[in-house]
Structures are given as structure tokens and as C-alpha cells.
Design a protein around this nucleic acid. Structure first.
Length: 867
RNA sequence: GCCGAAGUGGUGGAAUUGGUAGACACGCUAGACUUAGGAUCUAGUGUCGCGAGACGUGAAGGUUCAAGUCCUUUCUUCGGUACCA
């Protein structure tokens, strides 16, 4: 008999068994209810990290549980294999992105297999394979046909020195991360998906996703950013042309004393041309174009602007108001032009003060008198209208509609809705991605590649340019093309690749029929499996990935390819894995193994013996060195104990604080179960686990244990099924194990032994989703055959979860004063009588007559005596 | 600034609809066993107090027989987002 659990022997044994017997292979089976569980697939960076381990462990437990519950479960895994890290690694290590990616995939696949996850590996996919991205290109062409994809000119971050486009995260304080040259905004022609067509639908359905955390739907709603307002037209003075603005405050139009255009607004140039303002305007636009217009950037720049030299007519007052261009107006939002009401908007107020523009109060708060010349900040609240002609005295909230209607009659405005959401730009001037299947012809323009030519394969033998640029435009055999329309030989292939979010927007459908060659997916397979019942991943994808996926399903739905619109019925966003940082005064951040614990309990740096400062508990990251390596955990504790700790330390949605001591504790628990099982095998022979009701048992000890075991089954089932709170499920099993340890096996009679066997067997079944290898092994040792995952999930007996006696908690004036036990069925009068006769209670009640006595008989039995 | 979440022992965390606060685990203390143990077992462990007892869920109020849980105000931390007109 093995004294201890030996993961190095047991885990490979069962992994081999699972593989050999194809235990996790699934296919459509209409006789069973399906369950599709998916964890967000990883980017193949080379090594799995502890965040993956946690994510996939959570999913694996649910999958194994559902399998035992009788569901036909789809649980696939694959690789989000395109993306920039491969290009960077290629430059840094003088290798090729493809080689690097494929090596990483095989290394990570091995690691995942060692964790014992129940994937159907036959469904594995990698998005960088032409068999995969062929269908993405196919969909692109379809979207192009339906005008769901289009091309427009827009700005990208561009590094002149590296001759490449930079993603936002590659821009560090306005500079290129690789060469530190200041990044410029460059205008390029790019492909877009018209996600804005679905802004309203995506927004409305946020409220129809009950299985999603509110946090995520709220973030999506904010991202879509719907606002209701009015589109108003201001006629340009001296021209027969209008400037259209969007405002959420049409009630303040009488206070619009100037107008501001975004620097990129086409009218800025037109209006200033030929005026004495021209030079100033050009200089200003130039200056703003080099400013970083991101979150941090904005803080740095003061609100400023330049008069364009033109005026326009306020449609309400009919006054001439000056037109400015200002750095705080965004071209991408609304119409790129705003009517400025300095009395009612803080930005406009600051701007007006700076340039000496009129501040005219139009909304007066109740019981106050604001004055534009003396007020210190804008008033954005509600009130009644002033200085607004015929509308004076009206409540401003009512005025919004009234005034919009008034302007509408004059042909100067109408009610409208604006969204913050912008179309999805998918062109990337990068190499390691799916090529965009378009050919540019000097005569025919952008021509779709014929579907029969798909896939347009990414040439895998090309080398990344030294500075990180894409080699595709330089490769004649790739870039030179014949126009499919007119046959011109000097056409040029589109050398951009697609955003990697495109691949991840539909991969979960591909899993349903991963080798299907007739289309993106086999309709019957998708009809059976999709949508995903439970999706699990990091909250960092709350907006982009999840929103793009929701959009893609709407596209496929519109194309008649699927009959649902929401890809993920339930979503769990798991918390981050955190750990304290450690710093040495000389060596900076230290890895855990670089800090040595001395006898006194203090930590010192292994290099210089100086005291280590222990910092805050934060998300694990390589740069802070507060990491643990899953490989080392596997080596030291095995997969099962690692899984156990990930689940026990915190509920899944919360951040998990990594603790080496905690892992030790999990290790100890596993061995406690192991040793108990071994002792049972040795001392209990020839008996079968007890079957029946608690009332059939004669001894109190057997009865109590049997009830406890049944309660444990109930608790574990509820915790997994209803809330994924594995930590409390594990606690419940620990309690049962503790009870078992309190029993002396040598003096136990056969009846008790049978109940012990019942308990042990159920402990193994209940723990099997969490500790799969461990439980398979114990199950086998108990003489059972086959994989434990093919066993039915245990059911508790309803007649055996309540004890005969209950504890009565006695309170006097709401304070706990005494307790006693009593038969569960007794009448209230008896409880009252017994409570009032209680010695300790008499002390508090004395001869006072109780004013009120409250008896509660729910989970607890409680009596509160009020005197 | 705005939106969201969370504050409970030395630590991670438990506590259906308000009903014994601190389950379970880590750590710590003492003991047992052992050639040894970072193995294992037993007991103890919210704070103050010799004690009876009092006090305790970020803070302050409130509702209630009864509040970690409900209401009001407030503080802190974390996450998201941002000249969005």
C-alpha cells in the first residue's frame, strides 16, 4: 500500500488511460442534452502561466461534473496563434514567426496535457493555419458583398524610422517602443467592419444576457455609449452651406456663442483658406496632429484653439457666432463639430474665458441668479430658461423637445441618437496575420479575390524586416497580382493582414466541426452544439473580444448561417492570480526563489543577504517577478494538488492570492484523503457501502455520519451547480473527512464500516472533477473499473439529510444567552417552556414578564425573549 | 470626473429569504509520536478582562424582537473608462 499520493506515477498513468480509451472524445448525440463549455483560448506565448491554469481548471471541473450529470459535453482547446509577439520574438531570437509559434504550441500542449484537462484534442485548432483562416477570408468577402465591410482613409500610429505601424500598446509616451522615435499619425486606407449598424441591437441585448456578470454588460453599454440629442444645422455666414452639430442639450442653443470644429474637420481648411487666419490655423492643426490623443495624453494638453476666420449663424438667435477649431473636439464622435455653450459646459466655459468669448446664461437654477460675467464655472444642472426668447420661463428638460421641434419646423434640426461605438478597423500593416483577400487594380479599384482562389496563403518563408516591418509589400510573388476583373498584370495584392480579434470572433463555432472543408462550419454540428453554454475567461476581454464576437454572430445570423445571435449564454470572468512582490535594495524585484527565509522568519536576498522588502499583493507579472512557474508546481505537487489550491483559495470570480503555504495545505488534504482510503482498504474487508435511509441505521454514530455524508453531497452539488463556488464545496468535503478521522476504525462495527465506505466512495466521486487522477486511482483501488468520469454524479437521499435533534439558540433581547438540544419535531410551546426554565435564561429574565417571544424554526431554531 | 466592484481574526476566506459572525484552510502556541522531519496526530487560537462579562464585520447614523446582510451619509482600495458635446 502506498503511504502517500505519488503524482509522478499516478498522473501519467491516467493521462495515458484517458488518451488510449478516448475518454474525452465527443460527437453529436441527439439522445443526450448537450453542454458546450469553453475557456478563452490562449495566445501561444511559449509557456502556460498560472492564470491559464486557474482558468482551465475552473472549466475542467465544470466539464467533468456535467459529464457525470449525463450531459454530452463539448470541451475543446486551440490556439489564438496570430499576433505581434511572434514577430517580435522572430526579430529578437532570429527565428521565424511560424516556427516560433508552432514550437510554442507543442510545448504548451504538453503542459496542458500534464494538467489533466479533459479536452477533446481531436478538435484542436490553430488560427494561423490556412484551413482556418481560409474561412475567415471567405467571410470577409461575403461581408464585402453585403456592404458590411468597407474601406476608408484613417489615421494610424506610424514610426518613420522603423517604417511600421504601431499598435496603441507599442506607443510609450508618444514614442516608438523599439526605437524611441516620436510616433506620428499617418493617414492610410484601411478596411472596416460596420459594427455600428448593430450598435442598438448589441446595446438592447446587453439586458437580455442574464448569465453574464453585470460588470461586463455595463462596460459594453458604456462602450457603445448611446446618447440622445439633436442634430442642429448652423448656416455658414456668407456661404450656402451648413455646419451640422450634435448636442445633448438642445435647450441651451440660445447660449451657443461660438462653434468649435475638430482640427481634422474638412471645413477647417476650407473656411480658413485665403483669410488672414490661414497660417495660424495650419500651424495649429499641425501641432495638434502630433499630440497624443489618448487617455493620458489628454491630461497634458490645455484646451486651446484658433479662430478660423469664419462665422456661422445661430439658428435660434440668428446672431453671427465665430467658428473656431479646438483640440478638444473629436472628429470621430458626433459630427466633429460642436455648438459651444460656455454657461452650460465646463470645457466651453474654460475656452470662452481663455479667448474672451461671451458667456450667456440660458438655464437658471431655481432660487439663484447666475451672471455670465461673474460665474466661476459652468452650470450643467437643470433649471428654467432665460435669455431664450419665447421659451423663457420654460423648464429646461421640457425645452429640449419643444425647442428641437421648433428648429425642425425651420429646417434647422431634428432629434437624433449618437453612439460612441465606432466601426471596427481590421487592417493591420503587419506580417503575422490572415491576409486580406483583395486585389487593388489601377482601373477597377479594390477587387475581391474570387472565392475559388481562397485561401490566400500567408507566405511562411518570408522574413520579418529588421525593424519589425511587414515583408509582404516587398515580396513580389505575393504582392504582385493580376486583376481578377480586367486581367491587368500590374495589380497589387492588399498586403495588410486582419486584426487578430477577427480570428477569435468565431473560433468557438469552428470547434463544432473543426475539420469541415465545406465552409466555416458544418451547419448541423453548429445547430447541435452552439451557442456556448458557459464561457470562461479574463475580464480584460470584457469589451473588445466579447463585443466583436457578439457582432460576428449577428453578421452570421443576417447571412442566414446561424439561428441565434448571442454566442455565449453564460459568462464567467475569473479573477486575476496575485502574489506579493519582493524587492532587494540592491537587486530590485526578486523572483520568489531569490528570497531566502532565515530562522528568524525574515527574508534575505540570496545574492547580497540584505533584507528583502515585501510589497503589496498584485497581479502576477514577469516584470515584477512575483510569479510562480506551473512547471515547478507540477514537479513538486503534481497537477491535482495545483488544481485543488487554485479552486480552494478563492471563489473563481475573485482575485486569487497565491500562497506557497496554502498549496502545502492542499497537498496535506489530498494526502489525508489518500491515507484514510488506504486505512479503509486495509481494515474494511468484504463489506459493501451502506444503502438505505438514515432511519434504517441503529447506532447514533452511523446515523450521524450517514446524514453528514448526504449533506455533503447536497452541499457540493449545489456549490458547483449554482455558483461555481468550489472553495466551499471543498470545505464541505474537508468537514466530512474530519468527521471520518474522528472515528476509530478498529472498534467500528460492520454497520458503521458500511457507512464509512459509503462516505469514502462519495468523497472520491465528489472530488473527482477537482482531483481527477487522484480519484481515478483511488476508485480503481476500491475495486471499480472504468473511468470515474463515466460514473453518475452522486445523489443525496432527501430522507437522510436532517438530524432528529436540533440545537435551540436562546436569545434574551437579541443577545445569545444559552442553547440546548431538543427533538426536531416538538411543539413551540415546549421550546418556550424549556427556554424559560433554563438556568442561564432565568438569570436574565428573572421574574420580569416577557413582553414578546419570537420563535424561528428555519435553518436554525431560535427563540428570542424580549423583556 | 464618470461607471462598477470590494472592505469580516495574524492571513486566504465562510455565513438562502435579516436569525449562533468567523465554517474550511493557512499561520501561530502547547503537547504526543519519531533516529530525524518542512511527515503525522491531539488540544488551543477574534479582541479586552483573573473572572462573571463586555466589545466586535472600514466609519457614523437609522429601521427591527434581531443587521455582515436592509436604508441614509461617509471613508478607503481595486477595476473599467474618459475633453463623447
Amino acid at each position: 500500500m502506498e503511504e502517500r499520493y505519488h503524482p509522478e506515477l499516478v498522473e501519467p498513468k491516467w493521462q495515458a488511460y484517458w488518451k488510449e480509451n478516448q475518454v474525452f472524445k465527443v460527437r453529436e448525440d441527439t439522445s443526450k442534452e448537450k453542454y458546450y463549455l469553453l475557456e478563452m483560448f490562449p495566445y501561444p506565448s511559449g509557456k502556460i502561466h498560472i492564470g491559464h491554469v486557474r482558468n482551465y481548471t475552473i472549466g475542467d471541473v465544470v466539464v467533468r461534473y456535467k459529464r457525470m450529470k449525463g450531459f454530452n459535453v463539448l470541451h475543446p482547446m486551440g490556439w489564438d496563434a496570430f499576433g505581434m509577439p511572434a514577430e517580435n520574438a522572430a526579430i529578437d531570437n532570429n527565428t521565424h514567426p511560424a516556427a516560433w509559434t508552432y514550437e510554442n504550441i507543442s510545448a504548451m500542449r504538453e503542459q496542458l496535457k500534464k494538467m489533466g484537462f479533459s479536452y477533446d484534442w481531436d478538435r484542436e485548432l490553430a488560427t494561423c493555419r490556412p484551413e482556418y483562416y481560409k474561412w475567415e477570408q471567405w467571410l470577409f468577402l461575403k461581408m464585402l458583398e453585403k456592404k458590411m465591410a468597407y474601406r476608408k482613409e484613417s489615421y494610424v500610429n506610424w514610426c518613420e524610422k522603423c517604417q511600421t505601424v504601431l499598435a496603441n500598446e507599442q506607443v510609450e509616451q508618444d514614442k516608438c517602443w523599439r526605437c524611441s522615435k516620436t510616433v506620428q499619425q499617418k493617414k492610410l486606407w484601411q478596411w472596416y467592419f460596420k459594427i455600428t449598424d448593430y450598435a442598438e441591437d448589441l446595446l438592447v441585448h446587453c439586458d437580455k444576457l442574464p448569465g453574464w456578470p453585470d460588470k461586463v454588460t455595463v462596460m459594453q453599454k458604456n462602450w457603445i455609449g448611446k446618447s440622445i440629442g439633436s442634430a442642429l444645422k448652423f448656416k455658414i455666414d456668407g456661404k450656402n452651406e451648413d455646419i451640422e452639430v450634435f448636442t445633448t442639450r438642445p435647450d441651451t442653443i440660445f447660449g451657443a456663442t461660438f462653434m468649435c470644429l475638430a482640427p481634422e474637420h474638412p471645413l477647417v481648411e476650407t473656411l480658413s483658406r485665403g483669410t488672414k487666419q490661414e497660417d495660424q490655423v495650419t500651424a495649429f492643426v499641425q501641432k495638434v496632429s502630433s499630440q497624443e490623443r489618448s487617455a493620458e495624453g489628454i491630461e497634458k494638453y490645455e484646451k486651446e484653439g484658433v479662430f478660423t476666420g469664419a462665422f456661422c449663424i445661430n439658428p435660434a438667435t440668428l446672431e453671427k457666432v465665430p467658428v473656431y477649431t479646438a483640440n478638444f473636439v473629436l472628429m470621430e464622435y458626433g459630427t466633429g463639430a460642436i455648438m459651444s455653450v460656455p454657461a452650460g459646459d465646463q470645457r466651453d466655459f474654460d475656452f470662452a474665458r481663455k479667448y474672451g468669448l461671451e458667456i450667456r446664461v440660458v438655464v437658471q437654477p431655481e432660487g439663484d441668479t447666475l451672471d455670465g460675467t461673474t460665474m466661476e464655472e459652468a452650470y450643467t444642472g437643470d433649471g428654467f430658461m432665460v435669455n431664450s426668447g419665447e421659451f423663457n420661463g420654460l423648464d429646461n428638460k421640457k425645452a429640449m423637445d419643444v425647442m428641437t421641434n421648433w428648429l425642425e419646423k425651420k429646417g434647422r434640426g431634428q432629434k437624433t441618437i449618437s453612439y460612441r461605438l465606432r466601426d471596427w478597423g481590421i487592417s493591420r500593416q503587419r506580417y503575422w496575420g490572415a491576409p486580406i483577400p483583395v486585389i487593388h487594380c489601377p482601373d477597377c479599384g479594390a477587387v475581391p479575390v474570387p472565392k475559388s482562389d481562397l485561401p490566400i496563403k500567408l507566405p511562411e518563408d518570408a522574413n520579418i524586416l529588421e525593424k519589425g516591418g511587414s515583408p509582404l509589400p516587398t515580396l513580389d510573388f505575393f504582392a504582385k497580382a493580376t486583376c481578377p476583373e480586367c486581367g491587368r498584370k500590374d495589380a497589387k495584392r492588399d498586403t495588410d493582414t486582419m486584426d487578430t480579434f477577427v480570428e477569435s470572433s468565431w473560433y468557438y463555432l469552428r470547434y463544432c466541426s473543426p475539420r469541415y472543408e465545406g465552409g466555416m462550419f458544418d451547419h448541423d454540428a453548429v445547430k447541435y452544439w452552439a451557442p456556448v453554454d458557459q464561457y470562461i475567461g479574463g475580464v480584460e476581454h470584457a469589451v473588445l473580444h466579447l463585443l466583436y464576437s457578439r457582432y460576428f454572430m449577428r453578421v452570421l445570423h443576417a447571412l442566414g448561417m446561424i439561428d441565434f445571435k448571442e454566442p455565449f449564454t453564460r459568462l464567467l470572468t475569473q479573477g486575476m492570480v496575485c502574489k506579493e512582490t519582493m524587492t532587494c535594495p540592491d537587486h530590485g524585484y526578486l523572483f520568489p526563489e531569490e528570497a531566502l527565509k532565515e530562522d528568524k522568519g525574515n527574508l534575505v536576498c540570496t545574492k547580497c543577504k540584505k533584507d528583502v522588502e515585501v510589497g503589496r499583493v498584485i497581479k502576477m507579472s514577469k516584470s515584477k517577478k512575483n510569479v510562480v512557474d506551473p512547471n515547478e508546481l507540477l514537479e513538486k505537487y503534481g497537477a491535482d494538488v495545483t488544481r485543488l489550491f487554485c479552486l480552494f483559495a478563492a471563489p473563481p470570480e475573485r482575485d486569487l492570492e497565491w500562497s506557497e503555504d496554502g498549496v502545502e495545505g492542499s497537498h496535506r488534504f489530498a494526502n489525508r484523503v489518500w491515507r484514510f482510503a488506504m486505512e479503509c482498504l486495509e481494515k474494511i474487508d468484504g463489506l459493501k457501502p451502506f444503502k438505505g435511509a438514515a432511519s434504517d441505521l441503529s447506532s447514533k454514530q452511523a446515523k450521524d455520519l450517514y446524514i453528514k455524508a448526504n449533506q455533503t453531497i447536497q452541499k457540493v452539488t449545489d456549490d458547483i451547480d449554482k455558483s461555481f463556488h468550489f472553495n466551499t464545496a471543498i470545505s464541505a468535503v474537508m468537514e466530512l473527512v474530519n468527521v471520518l478521522y474522528s472515528i476509530d476504525l478498529d472498534s467500528a462495527d460492520d454497520e458503521l464500516k458500511k457507512v464509512i465506505l459509503f462516505s469514502l466512495e462519495n468523497i472520491i466521486l465528489l472530488l473527482s472533477p477537482i482531483l481527477p487522477h487522484f480519484c481515478e486511482e483511488l476508485f480503481e483501488k476500491l475495486g471499480r473499473t472504468g473511468s470515474i468520469i463515466e460514473q453518475p454524479w452522486p445523489e443525496y437521499r432527501k430522507d437522510s439529510i436532517k438530524t432528529d435533534e436540533v440545537i435551540v439558540v436562546v436569545q434574551v433581547n437579541g443577545k445569545l444567552r444559552s442553547k440546548f438540544t431538543i427533538d426536531a419535531g416538538v411543539e413551540e410551546a415546549i421550546i418556550k417552556e424549556k427556554a424559560l426554565a433554563d438556568e442561564k435564561i432565568l438569570k436574565y429574565v428573572g421574574d420580569k414578564k416577557p413582553k414578546k417571544i419570537i420563535i424561528i424554526r428555519k435553518k436554525q431554531t431560535l427563540i428570542n425573549i424580549v423583556v
